[in-house]
Design a protein around this nucleic acid. Structure first.
Lengths: 246, 246
DNA sequence: GGCTCATGTAAAGATCGTTCACATGAGCTG
DNA sequence: CAGCTCATGTGAACGATCTTTACATGAGCC
């Protein structure tokens, strides 16, 4: 029992040297395994090889550790959304859908972060830095929606960009939360969460009057840098977005 | 300290008489206050005026109590969705939107149930009865989507009802989870969650080609029982669903 | 060498989930 | 009505966790 801790200590000396970072990593792993609710402060300490009291030198309490993780999550989230948006290249609609897929990919690939960010029950306004990070991430979607709204087909009222951003966010979060998580709420779906979200967004955009009649994953020759947007009318495209997406 | 418990006991005798129900109610209140994660078995027992061990006579463990609450929640949820759907009266689209509003209303008015059902992290397949209740509730939305899909305007491919139901569910859950809960994740919104969801669903339905150009709350003279559905083409209606909804 | 202060430890109190032996009394049986 | 039975509740106890407090260690600096 005890030799274990002694050995650990022998390996690294009395001072850990990088405990804060080690705790964050340990907590991340634990959350990924057992969810934000099941993660314990003591476990993180044990995993880092220090006593249960050591974490208190770096975090006021368990919630502050969680909040730190959520903040990091929002930062990575923002980075991924920014990359996916790629400033609207090659065309706004394509980039917009890529943002949606990036949202889902993040939820799937970083379940620990996503859990801490959206499902841990910690109040967003607990930490000002957390709130700021969250807002920065949302602003990516907001900016994308802004660009998209500016392209509204002539003759139709221009949809508020803020509303569009909130709609897309709610779709992505809904799909991620209900269908795209590890073990919970896994129902038998007729299609993958990605396909589900993609179809949902496409139908939504069509409802706003945007032309969305693109070929499947559009991996073929991309249209020239000058986007061919605001072109076709608002007629219903021949094929639906759901018709055997793969 | 002790006289308090003695008095409690004097009031109700050694046997509580209705402890199971009392525990469920107590837990419901605690979850509403502090979330499913913050609720403790011991607290529920204390609130019911019994010892910490008493609950084990009625629930195998804390998770089973939570699961019981979730199951009840799904049953009430199903009842409300059924009432809102009202078998598609007076017309399918109107009834469909009413279901969406009922979803949000449930999330808002029964945060404890909603929390236990969707945000407590308990596996859906933990309890067969729970899973069944959950599926019955979803089947309401599925049936509604089925009816709606059958009305797809001629000339357009008929959308899969299952997919529509999943889309609507994800929208409602996304809006409820992100914007419509008590203290968490409350951002400054340009419109109420209800309006947000209503607009979202309307745009989505329009994207599917359904005519959605109805007057505001449509409380005026309803069209005759024979719904005028599958009438207008898929042209974009003059007003958007977001234009000053109230 | 010696001081200081951030960092880590051990011990302790409080709460919680859970189990166990035991107490109580409601309802059936005769 | 006496007595038995069994569901229901109690109190004590165990181990785990969160958190605080007093103390130990040693890295960096004079």
């Amino acid at each position: 029992m005890s030799w274990r801790k002694e050995q650990r200590r022998a390996e690294r000396g009395y001072h850990h040297g990088n405990l804060k970072e080690a705790l964050l990593q340990a907590a991340l792993g634990l959350i990924a395994e057992k969810g934000a609710a099941g993660f314990t402060f003591a476990d993180a300490a044990r995993m880092a090889g220090v006593s249960a009291a050591a974490p208190y030198r770096h975090f006021r309490d368990r919630d502050e550790l969680l909040s730190s993780i959520a903040q990091r999550g929002f930062e990575q989230f923002e980075a991924r959304l920014t990359a996916a948006w790629d400033d609207g290249r090659p065309d706004t609609v394509t980039a917009f859908e890529r943002v949606g897929r990036a949202y889902l990919a993040f939820a799937r690939e970083e379940p620990a972060f996503y859990n801490a960010m959206f499902e841990s029950g910690l109040p967003v306004d607990a930490n000002p830095a957390l709130q700021a990070a969250s807002e920065r991430a949302f602003n990516i979607m907001r900016a994308a929606a802004e660009r998209l709204a500016a392209l509204a087909p002539p003759g139709t009222p221009r949809p508020p960009a803020m509303m569009m951003a909130l709609h897309i966010w709610s779709m992505a979060h809904g799909v991620a939360s209900l269908f795209s998580r590890g073990d919970a709420a896994r129902r038998k779906l007729p299609m993958s969460p990605d396909e589900l979200l993609e179809a949902e967004v496409l139908i939504y955009l069509r409802g706003l009057g945007f032309p969305t009649d693109r070929r499947p994953p559009a991996k073929s020759a991309e249209p020239p840098p000058v986007p061919p947007e605001a072109s076709s009318g608002s007629g219903v495209p021949p094929g639906g977005p759901w018709g055997k997406p793969k």
